[in-house]
Design a protein around this nucleic acid. Structure first.
Lengths: 229, 229
DNA sequence: GCGACTTTGTTCAGGCGTTCACAAGCGGTT
DNA sequence: AACCGCTTGTGAACGCCTGAACAAAGTCGC
């Protein structure tokens, strides 16, 4: 029964596959030829059984009693995640964060290349950032058309993020990474991932407060304490 | 029955509460006094029923038939997420990303203040970034002690992230936001949140490929195709 | 003052993701 | 050639979160 891969891969698994791939790259550099699921899982910070389940979505790719071939697994993961072909990206909003992303080495090494940087501020337009010249945002459609960019990264202020998003979608960009603190509305068939930095900090603050504050709540020493009202 | 709040709030809910809080701030600036769950949910990009469930963890805070008081709900959310008190943070690794975070306005407006910037590079140490002078990473323990920082943000290269993390934990920091592409190991009682930018892009790339590639996979036209082997 | 409409708060079912535990399979050894 | 230990792959249970339907409750209009 040669059913190739009828299963669908959960998005949470996909995210972890990317992590495994990075760990494998490190192991390959270290000259390792084989890894066990336990070692790989510990390096990636996940449960070994979960890791095996994640990998099983790609079909059997290990050898029982031995483990996984580092190079073999790396190739298979690379393939599953979209191959090695370079993915052209456009970045809109060249502020501090945008500039940092524009020449973040971690992207280029994984096949993501910025082919267009756009901003509204005349003081920013024309500057070189990460080997690329910033162009006025009016040229967004032209840049996407001439570079065939497939991914758009939005690091604009929140107020203009939706309009930038709409323009990206209108010229065929179907993958958007949004750093602006707003919920973008997109038609079906377009994927948006949101990274919200202050939310991350706020969750940490909550957990911190909970650590200090919930012991009294979970195990109230004095029920009749001054919890007025 | 004056049971205060026996329930525990799921982490996913906490993250959304932070989003609601930001939306409410915008509504308050716009002069709105009341909102319905539907409107708030649409602005936050979530389901109305889910929003009401999220808010119900804080106890009843709306008025049936009317909606939620913007200022009242904002105060209650602010309180639930840790109050308005300023949270001192230290940032280790003042590269491009670190610099961008150091003077990201979105943090300060939510009560997160960087009180220490640290780096190893002598060329970076001493520079002013976001109104603060970068200090050598050797002084990490001293900086945490004198500023009483409770949150550590790591934007170093992956290789040194774990050692920086260990040092933060050793001086009492129990909340860590990690941008380095490694899984940090911490003792129980310490919370780590990880932001992995290239994973986000890789997930987008996968979804993009899946959109184009899976139709043949999900609905195989020819089961007996050349799936040799 | 009463009724009807609106909106919240809650309860219920469904799906998804994670975890544990076991059987299958391969290499090395005797 | 057969056995033993090790590791993968998978099946099932558990728990969490999400999405929808219903009841309570308050307000506005008459």
């Amino acid at each position: 029964m040669p059913q190739s891969r009828p299963r669908i891969i959960p998005e949470a698994t996909v995210a972890r596959l990317a992590v495994y791939l990075r760990v494998l790259a490190g192991l390959a550099d270290g000259g390792r030829s084989h890894v066990s699921s336990g070692e790989l899982a510990s390096a990636a910070g996940v449960n070994p059984a979960g890791l095996r389940k994640d990998l099983s979505y790609l079909g059997p790719c290990g050898v029982r009693g031995v483990g996984y071939s580092v190079s073999g697994l790396r190739d298979r993961l690379t393939d599953a995640l979209g191959g090695e072909r370079s993915r052209p990206c456009v970045l809109i909003g060249i502020g501090r964060l945008g500039s940092a992303l524009a020449d973040y080495a971690g992207f280029a090494s994984r096949g993501f290349e910025f082919v267009g940087l756009l901003d509204t501020d005349p003081a920013t337009v024309g500057h070189r950032v990460g080997g690329l010249q910033v162009r006025p945002v009016q040229e967004l459609e032209a840049v996407v058309a001439e570079t065939h960019a497939t991914i758009g990264v939005i690091t604009t202020p929140a107020e203009v993020a939706q309009s930038v998003c709409d323009r990206l979608v209108s010229v065929g960009v179907r993958s958007i990474l949004n750093f602006a603190p707003v919920a973008l509305t997109v038609p079906a068939g377009v994927d948006v991932r949101k990274v919200d930095l202050s939310v991350e900090l706020q969750v940490l603050a909550f957990l911190d407060q909970q650590r200090d504050g919930t012991p009294p709540l979970l195990a109230p020493l004095r029920p009749a304490q001054g919890v007025a009202r």
